[in-house]
Amino acid sequence: MSKILIVAEHDGTTLNQATARAVTCARQIPAAHVTVAVFAADPAAVAAAAAALVGVDAVVTVAHAANASPLAATLAPQVVALASGYTHVFAASTAFGKDLLPRVAALLGVPQISDAMAVVGAYSFKRPTYAGNAIVTLEAPADRTLVATVRSASFEPAAQGGSAPISAATVTADLPTHTRFVGLSASPKSDRPDLASAAKVVSGGRALASKENFNIVYSLAGKMGAAVGASRAAVDAGYASNELQVGQTGKIIAPDLYVAVGISGAIQHLTGIKDAKTIVAINKDPEAPIFEVADFGLVADLFVAVPEIEKALG
């Protein structure tokens, strides 16, 4: 039997949906027993959310004042202490998971599988390389802990309606003091859906040409109830903030609908959207590579087309 430990990602009060997607990945492993671990200053609310996910067999909480901030250096030794007795340690392949799990793997002395996108067997997974242009099947030894981050875009979130038991654990680990949390400058909270988990996303690229012009992306997204994304070129140029970047080095997303506005479609961007169910591309260059992956392509000046779309949506 595979005993899988998933490190929950959260902001202190809310469980990140990426963790629910990692649960779905874990459940695809035959005869899996799935435990979600919540490291927090006060884990109650997050633990309750994790326990409510279908497919979670148990939730363990590790309450500690040092766990108020998600510092890899502080969390890794605790995860390692908790990991004995488990065959697998998972986390979502988000900034949090990418920061934490390699530290855990190295402390355990095992390699890591990054961005697991398909389960082949309990110790075999597929993962993307070369910006998604080569899919590699990896096999890890069964006699060691398997550490993996889970590519969120490849798995649906686990459903609500579970009722796993919650228990508190104490771990013995030396917590370093060499790393200190200073602050988080979060983007202003808005009513917009979260980019990583939104069903619809409208993204803008270099062709928007200015930060002011980028507002038409926000406007269309608002009309559609969509999240806003951006290409690397748009973020580098300062039209949009860094956490909106979609692509190989930004967020990998799989919405039902992705609307690319003025994005040419570099391979590094395409790898971030290939799993979208429907892709719409609006670009005035008919040769733009984005049209190779688009289900619906519109060759048009975005400054004319986007307001027209908004109008047509009523």
Partner: peptide
């Protein structure tokens, strides 16, 4: 640091 929620600042030795 560029994290999913925005920009995080940490101090290290």
């Amino acid at each position: 640091r560029e994290v999913d929620a925005g920009l995080e600042t940490i101090e290290v030795d």
